[in-house]
Amino acid sequence: MKRLFVLCVVALASVACANRGPAVEIKPEEAIGVAYDKSVELATAVAEAKSYEEFVAARAELERYEEAMRTQIGGEDYEIFLQSANEVLSNIK
């Protein structure tokens, strides 16, 4: 029973990791670049996806960076990250 439980946990963890990819690590000195440029690049990839699969992958990548900015950097840089991404996402014509 115990073994089965451990096996299930390991399987769930590996599925979760496989879907999300490795965690993004942002150094404080890179925060400005990520906030201004990387967010636009990632959001543009989401907006310009040519298929649903491409969109899902681009969205996951954008959300990984959003999470990293929120948990590791925060503050004004995180706000700028969101603003830049929002600007691109709201300008899809």
């Binding site: 959003e66 969101l82 929002n86 899809i92």
Partner: peptide
């Protein structure tokens, strides 16, 4: 900040 986060997730959900 909450408004920005809501817009962010809202836009992605809409897409």
């Amino acid at each position: 900040l909450k408004a920005l986060q809501d817009t962010f997730s809202g836009s992605l959900d809409m897409l």
